Amino acid sequence: MSDQPGPQTKKPFLYVVVCAAGIAGDVHELITAAQRANWDVGVVATPQGLGFIDAAAVEARTGYPIRSAWRAPGDPRPLPPPDAIAVAPATFNTINKWAAGISDTLAVGILCEAYGLGIPTAVLPHLNSAQAAHPAYRLSLDRLRGMGVMIGSYEPHSPEAGGGAGRFRWEEALELLTPRLSAQA
């Protein structure tokens, strides 16, 4: 008998896109919360984001390899297709590239395609107030909202404040996604 769930009991699959922010090392908090909420989880990291997480621990926790680079044509897909995507933490760079459609990394490419595929996506920005003051950031958030992306409530931290990790609510990604997925069911 297989330990894999059957078609009737298949868990929804969540992609967690991780960017290069100081709090990225705590992504296990979102992974654990998602698994407790009956999600299977796979992680896609930006190339720079890989350096901010414990890859071996994340892979052991999810049971899947972390994706960061494009796969070669004909190579198998290491992750199932996502039912939803959570971008956490999302950096200034990723938010602006995604909104502009600049698909120069696997992570941003997946996000750009998610819109066309209708995949529910939540983003939890994590950036400082100096970055958030740049006019491109607000325009990017407006564009993402217009695309149906759900945006978390985190308020940018002071550039000298040490990153605002204590105010970052990882579980907010699931709070944003759950009503959208329930409406689709």
Rank of each mutant, 00 (worst) to 15 (best):
G116H: 06
I119S: 02
N96D: 04
I102S: 05
A100Y: 12
D104M: 09
G118M: 07
P120Y: 02
Q131G: 00
T105W: 12
N128R: 03
E113D: 11
D104R: 01
S129W: 00
V123R: 01
D104C: 09
A114G: 10
P125F: 04
P125D: 00
A130K: 05
I95E: 07
N128M: 03
I119V: 15
I119M: 03
A100F: 13
A114S: 15
A107I: 01
G116N: 07
E113C: 13
A114R: 07
A122H: 03
S103C: 14
P120A: 03
L111A: 07
V123I: 11
L124I: 01
L106Q: 05
C112R: 07
V123C: 08
W98K: 13
I102R: 02
L124Y: 00
S129K: 02
A114I: 09
T121G: 09
A130Q: 06
H126Q: 08
G118Q: 04
A130H: 06
C112H: 05
G101L: 05
L117M: 10
A130P: 02
G101M: 03
H126C: 07
A100H: 13
C112V: 13
G101V: 12
N96I: 01
N96V: 15
I110Q: 10
I110L: 14
V123N: 01
S129H: 00
T121C: 10
V123M: 11
A114N: 07
L106G: 05
G116W: 06
N96W: 12
N128S: 04
G109T: 15
L127S: 00
I95P: 13
N96A: 14
G116R: 01
V108R: 04
V123E: 00
V123W: 04
Q131S: 03
N96S: 14
A122Q: 02
L124R: 01
A122Y: 01
E113P: 11
L106Y: 08
N93R: 15
A107N: 10
A100I: 12
V108P: 13
N128G: 06
V123K: 02
L111T: 11
A99R: 11
T105G: 10
G118L: 02
V108A: 06
A100L: 15
G101K: 11
E113A: 15
P125G: 04
G116F: 04
L124M: 08
A122S: 06
N128H: 09
G118K: 06
A122D: 01
A114T: 11
T121D: 09
C112Q: 05
A122G: 05
C112D: 09
D104Q: 06
A122E: 01
A100N: 12
V108N: 06
I119F: 02
I95F: 10
S103L: 08
S129F: 00
T105L: 12
L117C: 08
W98T: 14
Q131F: 12
N128A: 04
N93S: 15
G118W: 08
L117D: 05
A107V: 08
K97W: 13
G118V: 05
N93W: 15
L124T: 00
L127I: 05
W98V: 07
I119K: 03
P125I: 08
T94F: 11
W98G: 12
L127M: 11
T94V: 15
A100S: 14
T121W: 03
S103R: 10
E113V: 13
L127E: 01
V108T: 13
C112W: 02
I102D: 09
I102M: 12
S103D: 13
A130C: 02
L111F: 09
